[in-house]
């Protein structure tokens, strides 16, 4: 069984590793985590974002928000850049998350086909 004493070693290692992690580049990711989002699979989506960012040693805050009123498009996530521009990605899967992190967060290219403005999101 793990003990709290292990946290001391983790603390030392984390302090070292903090120096090599890349800056957050001004991005923020917000996941829809209301009842509709959770039921549609938002938890593994948020976890996929966290794991993808960690894999690349990028510090970007990933947080949760409530229902925005378009439950049928869940799981959804907003990627907000340093200027406050919001891109809403819809009907996410872990595979889509991998591409969004690679293209949008790392290379600054919006993945248009997964956004709320794409043809599949006609109201």
């Amino acid at each position: 069984m793990k003990s709290l004493a292990e946290l001391d070693a983790i603390r030392k290692s984390a302090l070292e590793n903090m120096k090599v992690r890349k800056d957050n580049q001004g991005f923020k990711i917000v996941i829809g985590m209301a009842t509709c989002g959770i039921a549609a699979g938002a938890r593994p989506i948020m976890n996929a974002f966290v794991e993808e960012l960690n894999k690349r040693s990028i510090n970007v805050p990933v947080t949760m928000t409530g229902c925005v009123g378009v439950c049928r498009l869940e799981p959804m996530a907003d990627v907000i850049d340093e200027n406050g521009n919001k891109t809403t990605y819809i009907m996410l899967t872990p595979e889509k998350v991998e591409k969004i992190v690679q293209n949008h967060i790392v290379n600054g290219q919006i993945v248009s086909e997964y956004t709320i403005n794409s043809t599949q999101a006609v109201f």
Binding site: K2, I10, R11, A14, V50
Partner: peptide
């Protein structure tokens, strides 16, 4: 308290 100076959101802490 245990990880004083490190954010609880830190990857290694979260994995633990």
């Amino acid at each position: 308290k245990q990880i004083d100076g490190v954010d609880i959101n830190n990857n290694e802490v979260i994995n633990w």
